[in-house]
Design a protein around this nucleic acid. Structure first.
Lengths: 248, 248
DNA sequence: GAATAAAGTTGATCTAGATCAACCAATCCA
DNA sequence: TGGATTGGTTGATCTAGATCAACTTTATTC
């Protein structure tokens, strides 16, 4: 909280206003740019664009032009196999960047669907790239963001390849909780934006298993479930489930 | 084959020799650099370094200094969870780049173990990054390589989250076959560098299931298995398993 | 605000793949 | 060269989670 305020204070007011629709600077772009560099960035980034719940930000197969920074809202990303199976590859919230998978082939490889009314800032990749050539800190930032996505994906592989249903759900809830906390929302009580089926797709489980496991956690007193509202009552027990030492 | 030769011919002989230990230029760095730019790249990339079978190129937790391009050989990358479970996140062969996961946090997040005697070219990231600022084609190439890794990871998630054991194995074999083909090796007959257990870890299966499924494929006449030597006899049937339309 | 559709829960049953176990084959090493 | 270790196969059994099914609750729509 205090840190948030400090960052805000570091940014001259007139510069903040020049991108009034877009809190990108605080959210997902590097601190440390000079005012000139920031100005240049602002000219590249378009005004925030609203995306209604259920709408696609982009779909697999569409030509790639831009990365998108989520200003407010919540998205799912998913790939569809040839035979029509959907795999949710991630849930993304404010401050996160989407579309990096499209750089390699110049078209999008997954769908990005808004799970609530959202706003994104469009960042034309060609221009961002050009600017990055002149601004090392921006270049480095882009590499880091992409690398972080790779690390995250490896974590999901570990989850899908090794973990049992209860562990997957516990990891999922704790991860969401943590990410809400970072954004200044409650870490102990939050609203799930996705269906049980979408959770299941992400975690490699069927929706019935997701539902049952949530009920079980509730019976054990770890959480309280009220439809999509989750209250975390005993996060230590959830963490213990995860670090489950299989013998102690 | 013809294409390979053409690429070679485009590179002046004296430049090729300046990096005699390192066929990076042909393997994993962009075609289209000027001779000067190539020269500069060569001064950055260190001589090829041999890694014996079983040795680690790097391990999770080690500080990050360089990316590594595999010149010859075969590696597995794996993450270990707090409680000691290993998840193989990928198998990597000549021409591929490793270590990109480490950029985000400045230390490696997975182990890279040689599965046969190998050689890598070390590419100090700081210097590569600096050069990339001056050479847009190199910068773009790095973004593309990282993006490709993200797309690959999404494919593995689909596999782990949605596919049955037979589909996973079929996908795995076809993928290996294709990658060997690209490198000029036989696509129909190849040697597995990894154990059944490592295959299982990658595919989210137990080694017994891997073994049984390979035997089943052999019984069905799709492949011939002789210890680690795999001969693909009927790749169409394997592909059909994958695009399995669940009703036809 | 009733009608309809979509999302969620819970129970009964089934099964793919895990686990346990015994054995065989290859390769390593003194 | 021959014993030991590691890797691989195959069978028998078990179980976590899938599947099928009935029902309830919550959204959406006109």
């Amino acid at each position: 909280m205090i840190q948030n305020i400090q960052i805000r204070e570091l940014t001259p007011r007139h510069l903040r206003q020049s991108c009034s629709n877009c809190s990108l600077r605080e959210l997902c772009l590097p601190i440390g740019l000079t005012p000139d560099e920031m100005q240049e960035l602002d000219t590249i980034i378009t005004q925030a664009r609203p995306i209604k719940r259920g709408e696609a930000l982009y779909r697999a197969g569409e030509p790639f032009k831009s990365l998108f920074a989520i200003r407010v809202g919540f998205f799912k990303a998913s790939v569809i196999s040839e035979d029509g199976r959907e795999q949710v590859t991630g849930f993304h919230m404010s401050g996160e960047l989407m579309g990096m998978d499209a750089i390699s082939s110049d078209f999008h490889t997954c769908d990005a669907i808004a799970l609530e009314d959202s706003e994104v800032c469009e960042m034309p990749f060609g221009e961002i790239e050009e600017l990055a050539g002149d601004v090392p800190i921006l270049q480095r930032h882009l590499y880091k963001v992409m690398s972080r996505e790779i690390v995250r994906d490896h974590g999901v592989m570990l989850l899908l390849g090794n973990m049992k249903a209860e562990e997957r759900l516990a990891a999922f809830l704790l991860n969401l909780s943590q990410r809400f906390a970072i954004r200044g929302y409650s870490s102990s009580s939050f609203h799930l934006r996705m269906t049980r089926e979408e959770i299941g797709s992400y975690l490699g489980l069927k929706l019935e298993t997701v539902s049952r496991t949530l009920s079980k956690f509730q019976d054990q007193g770890f959480i309280k479930v009220q439809n999509r509202l989750i209250e975390i009552i005993d996060s230590d027990s959830l963490k213990k489930l995860l670090n489950n030492c299989h013998g102690e």
